[in-house]
């Protein structure tokens, strides 16, 4: 666990909401990855939202780590959506030449949750019966 100040991982029913709160170095990023993937397996989560709004930079390593998380989550039966990429960070990512993989992105947490198929307001845990 990287500690509550750097990242937080909240469980909401079948989903995990992971927020990165500050710039992470590579080791912290890897700890976050391991921690998140471990929790996905433990909770048998079906969906993961990763909020990266606090990241000042998403360089090749950061983007690649997010993609790895999505891939490992997929192997465990969960879908991942990245939310909160800042305008300048988004532009730097594409300028760097990140090739668009198949990890979905959305504007913010609300959109990410909507993407996973459930309105934000809904409190009920249980199965994911809304259309994906």
């Amino acid at each position: 666990m990287t500690g509550p100040k750097l990242v937080s991982i909240l469980r909401q029913g079948d989903w995990l909401i992971a927020s990165i709160h500050t710039a992470l170095d590579d080791s912290q990023m890897l700890l976050f990855r391991n921690d998140l993937v471990e929790q996905i397996g433990r909770h048998r989560s079906r969906g993961v939202v990763i909020d990266v709004a606090a990241l000042d930079v998403l360089d090749s390593f950061g983007a690649n780590t997010l993609r790895t998380i999505a891939e490992m989550a997929r192997l465990r039966g969960a879908e991942t959506v990245i939310v909160g990429i800042q305008p300048d960070v988004a532009f730097a990512m594409v300028s760097l030449g990140m090739d668009t993989g198949d990890v979905p992105t959305a504007l913010d947490l609300e959109e990410g949750l909507a993407y996973l198929g459930r309105p934000t307001g809904a409190r009920s845990r249980g199965r994911r019966d809304a259309a994906g």
Binding site: P87, A90, F91, M93, V94, T100, T105, E111
Partner: peptide, 12 residues
């Protein structure tokens, strides 16, 4: 083109 791609990363 970069701007278009960046917009997509922001979910648009």
């Amino acid at each position: 083109v970069r701007t278009v791609d960046a917009s997509r990363l922001m979910g648009a």
